[in-house]
Structures are given as structure tokens and as C-alpha cells.
């Protein structure tokens, strides 16, 4: 069942097209990810879906019902976690959660119980009565996620949930996302971390300059780079001495020397028959220390499809995170 459907969604800011006719859907119970660099249109897409930004063209539906021009009727079913924690600094963690519950019309008793349960689940019980301003960045992000799900929404929008926080907290937050997903929450996640997208998302879309350039499950996306098979060998001798003989015996394979003379990378368009290769190594008295099948990564797919080097994208994002910490607001 489709929870969210976006049809030809477009957003223009004074002539600048931030999101250009994107088409995608999110199925019930899945984690759907938007992966793209800074300025790709990730946050603008979330803002259009949640009603924070008006839609220039196209349609959005929640559970089959069009809410393009009336986001209010869909907002009760949405949980939104922005890229920067935006709870109230002077309120405690518990007060922030109960206040957010009240915004969704939850009764006093119900929201107090739910807030206590979430504080427990998110490991924030000890800090429940501390003001939000006294929380660390990671704790703030956790509480912001808790605030996003206090009313048990049908779909949770997570905008860059682990940007700008330390590794340990990022790990905790990823685990929390997995837990929420296991409990049936549908999640729309934007990220620039490819490992995060690969680990968490069932389906992914690569978004660049406002356009979706590729979409599918991780397996479907990987198909693009599966035309070539690669095996790396580490041997007990200098492979250059026997390279010619291997090339004669295995004409369909491409033998590339590694960094060291005892390393060789063998490429083939078809599936490998490993046994004859190993047998020949043994005949030549070249013991095989390691044989590793090299699979293309999602990063390779992303670079191939978008032409954007991942490191560059993450460096840009790091700068955005620093700006965010200084109070600036960046839109991606």
C-alpha cells in the first residue's frame, strides 16, 4: 500500500527550480531514502510533502487522498524531524514532548504516558527534567525524533537525522530508526551518508539538482554496475612472471597487476570459473593467500549515475553542518 505518492512535484523559488517534476512513492512500512548532495532538493521535497512550502506544480497524496493544496488535513498523520533540532530551549525534555503531543490533540494523561515511554526508549529518562538547552547535540536530536513520533504518525519524515552529531550518537540514532521501522513506522529519510542509506533504506532515490536520477531497491540500483566480475588474488610470488601464461590460458579474462607484484586483479564480463585459476596457480607453485570477490558498492553506483564524487558531497555537507551549528539555515 502506498502511503505517500508524489506526482510531477515541482518547486520554483523566484524562477529558480529547486525541485523539478519528481515522481516517487513511499510504501507502508518501508524506509524510503533520498540521497543527494547539498542543494539537491531534499529538504525542499520534505517541506512540500509536509506543507511547509507551497507546491508550484504536481500532486501529493496521502493514502490515496490528494492534499496538494490542503496540507493541514494530512499533517495529523505526519511526524516531522527537521535537519536542526527546533524544540523549545527553556522547556525540559518531558515538557517538550508533552507539548508536542498536545499540538496533535493528545489528552493530558495519554501524552504524559507516551512521553515517559519515549524518554525511556530513547535513553533520555535521566535528562527528562533538564531544560532542552542543557542537552548535548546528540541528545537534542534524539529528543527531536521522539517529538516527531509522540502522536504515533503514519509516516515519519527524517531530514538528515545524523548530520553534525558524533559517531556514537549517530549509531544510536540509526539503531532507533531500525527499531521504529521494526515497529511498523513508515519513514522518509534524507541523507548524504551513502552507508546510512544503504543500511537503513529498503528503497532509495538519488536526487541531484532537483531531479531524481535513479530510484529503486539497493539491489536494483546495484544492477547497473553488475556487468563486470572482479576477483582479487594475493599470491606467494611475483605474478608478472606468469602473467603471459595466464593470459594465454584464460583469454576472456583481463589480468591487472595490483599495488604489489604479488597482487592481481582479474576482471571478466562473464561469471568466473575459480577452480581452474587456483589450479594453475598451484601448478606454478604460487600459493594463494587470499582470493576476494569484489562487489561494486552503492557508492560506485552513485558516482556512476550522478557523476558526483562522494567525498566532495560529504565535505560540502560538513560545511553545511557547521553553518547550521552557528544558527544559519541551509536548504538542500
Amino acid at each position: 500500500m502506498k502511503i505517500i505518492e508524489a506526482e510531477n512535484l515541482k518547486k520554483e523559488f523566484n524562477g529558480f527550480v529547486a525541485v523539478d517534476e519528481v515522481d516517487f512513492h513511499i510504501n507502508k512500512g518501508e524506509i524510503f531514502g533520498f540521497l543527494g548532495p547539498n542543494g539537491a532538493g531534499k529538504t525542499t521535497t520534505i517541506n512540500m510533502l509536509t506543507g511547509m512550502v507551497k507546491i508550484s506544480a504536481g500532486k501529493v497524496k496521502l493514502m490515496g487522498e490528494d492534499y496538494t493544496h490542503n496540507a493541514k488535513k494530512a499533517q495529523a498523520m505526519m511526524g516531522i524531524v527537521p535537519d536542526e533540532s527546533n524544540l523549545y530551549e527553556e522547556l525540559s525534555g518531558l515538557e517538550n514532548l508533552t507539548f508536542c503531543g498536545a499540538l496533535y490533540g493528545m489528552e493530558r494523561k495519554h501524552r504524559a504516558e507516551r512521553a515517559a515511554r519515549l524518554l525511556q526508549q530513547f535513553g533520555l529518562m535521566e535528562a527528562a527534567n533538564k531544560p532542552f538547552k542543557a542537552y548535548s547535540k546528540g541528545m537534542k536530536r534524539k529528543l527531536t525524533i521522539a517529538a516527531g513520533i509522540i502522536h504515533q504518525p503514519e509516516i515519519l519524515f527524517l531530514d538528515e537525522p545524523t548530520t553534525g552529531i558524533d559517531v556514537a550518537f549517530a549509531r544510536q540514532i540509526r539503531n532507533l530508526i531500525v527499531e521504529l521501522h521494526k515497529k511498523g513506522t513508515t519513514i522518509f529519510l534524507t541523507t548524504h551518508y551513502i552507508e546510512e542509506a544503504e543500511r537503513l533504506c529498503q528503497r532509495l532515490a538519488f536526487i541531484v539538482r532537483g531531479k531524481i536520477v535513479k530510484e529503486g531497491t539497493v539491489e536494483e540500483l546495484m544492477k547497473d554496475t553488475q556487468g563486470e566480475n572482479v576477483v582479487n588474488f594475493t599470491l606467494g610470488g611475483d605474478f608478472s612472471n606468469i602473467k603471459e601464461e595466464f593470459e594465454e590460458r584464460f583469454p576472456g579474462y583481463d589480468f591487472k597487476m595490483g599495488k604489489n607484484n604479488n597482487e592481481v586483479s582479474i576482471h571478466s564480463a562473464s561469471t568466473f570459473a575459480l577452480f581452474p585459476l587456483v589450479q594453475l596457480f598451484e601448478e606454478k607453485d604460487f600459493p594463494v593467500y587470499e582470493a576476494k570477490i569484489v562487489r561494486p558498492s552503492l557508492e560506485d553506483v552513485f558516482v556512476k549515475v550522478t557523476g558526483i564524487e562522494l567525498q566532495k558531497m560529504q565535505d560540502e555537507q560538513g560545511q553545511k553542518g557547521k553553518k547550521g551549528q552557528k544558527g544559519g539555515r541551509a536548504r538542500s
Binding site: 509536509t50 506543507g51 511547509m52 493541514k72 488535513k73 499533517q75 495529523a76 505526519m78 516531522i80 527537521p82 536542526e84 527546533n86 524544540l87 523549545y88 530551549e89 508536542c100 499540538l103 496533535y104 490533540g105 517529538a147 544558527g327 539555515r329
Partner: peptide, 15 residues
């Protein structure tokens, strides 16, 4: 508005 907490109110399902 500056601290962005007002966005939370704008996203709440109230008119």
C-alpha cells in the same frame, strides 16, 4: 521564528 520552533507550530494540524 529565528529559533525555528515556530515551524513546529506551523506543521501542527491546527488551522
Amino acid at each position: 521564528r529565528r529559533s525555528r520552533s515556530f515551524e513546529r507550530l506551523l506543521l501542527a494540524p491546527i488551522s
